[in-house]
Design a protein around this nucleic acid. Structure first.
Length: 303
DNA sequence: AAGACGGGGCG
DNA sequence: CGCCCAGTCTT
């Protein structure tokens, strides 16, 4: 008869107890980066914008785009009223430009349904375009200072390593991972916010995917992965999607062309790698379908 | 549950 | 040149 999970010596709360939480928060106080969306005077909306931009995009690449963006469109109303083509140009090469469209739709929904204020609560946030489980939690924690599970790739990696002793989280955010994050989340809201910020930063700067700097980690002495000798991943590695030669790459090329200005269909089709490359036609169609391009009388342009 | 969806920079 | 990044939406 196995002991109940809560009494196991490696229960999440015992690995990441109050002392460990303090250690991570103290580390963050000293080593955390000074990022503009962490400043006290940052609006809820600008924090939401940063979270959308940071989806699958590193901080260093987001920083300049976010600064320009917030200067240009400081409120949801400003973005709602902006021309879509200008929004897509300002998105520049952040990637996944559908995010920019969704962000503009999100601004419209906030203006229309919430009187221009970022709504509170996971349900209301999740109902907004482009906001999923992670971003709803991040906005709740970082913009509204509320208690919420925030589970980005950095936090998931720290938890899985320190508590489970595994090298990296799986592709999906599973129910058991959600339970783990919930179990270690401090009860006090202010402390939970600080913990979320701190552990995310720890994953970004120290407990990194490629070359973790365990010598600089406040959790190393109790980290199950470190104390076990940093074992390699057990199961099959998470499958990465290719990029070279894909439709995604071609869509990116077409969007880059359109950011320069209107283009002829022939120009777009000329982006093919070979005469047998049928991607340009297919991708042009998909971009129009997504609302990222318009096609009229043989001219392609941003919407 | 699996696949689509960008792009760049580091080791 | 492979790997990874503050995920979301669709099927």
């Amino acid at each position: 008869m196995p002991a109940p999970a809560s009494s196991l010596p490696d229960a999440p709360q015992e690995i990441l107890d109050d002392t460990a939480i303090d250690a991570v928060i103290d580390w963050f106080t000293v080593a955390g980066r000074d990022l503009p969306w962490r400043h006290d005077d940052t609006s809820s909306w600008s924090i939401l914008v940063s979270e959308i931009m940071l989806q699958q995009t590193p901080v260093v690449r987001v920083l300049p785009r976010w600064l320009e963006w917030m200067h240009r469109w400081p409120t949801p109303r400003d973005l709602d009223e902006a021309p879509t083509a200008e929004v897509l140009r300002a998105w520049d090469r952040l990637g996944y430009p559908r995010r920019a469209l969704r962000l503009k739709d999100c601004a419209h929904a906030i203006v229309t349904d919430h009187d221009g204020e970022v709504p509170r609560g996971p349900e209301a946030l999740r109902a907004l375009p482009g906001i999923g489980e992670y971003t709803a939690g991040a906005v709740t924690a970082f913009a509204h200072h509320g208690r919420a599970v925030v589970a980005d790739t950095n936090i998931r990696r720290v938890l899985v390593r320190s508590v489970r002793g595994e090298a990296s989280p799986g592709a999906a955010f599973t129910a058991s991972e959600r339970a783990l994050a919930t179990n270690v989340l401090p009860e006090d809201p202010a402390r939970s916010v600080r913990w979320n910020q701190a552990v995310m930063e720890l994953g970004a700067l120290v407990c990194t995917a490629r070359s973790p700097r365990c010598d600089a980690c406040p959790l190393s002495s109790r980290c199950r992965w470190f104390t076990a000798g940093r074992p390699a991943q057990q199961g099959p590695p998470v499958r990465r999607q290719a990029f070279e030669g894909t439709d995604r790459q071609m869509r990116g090329r077409i969007m880059a062309l359109l950011r320069e200005g209107p283009a002829s269909v022939d120009q777009v089709l000329g982006l093919a790698d070979s005469t047998a490359d049928d991607r340009p036609q297919r991708c042009l169609d998909s971009l129009v379908r997504d609302g990222l391009a318009t096609l009229e009388e043989g001219t392609v342009r941003l919407p």
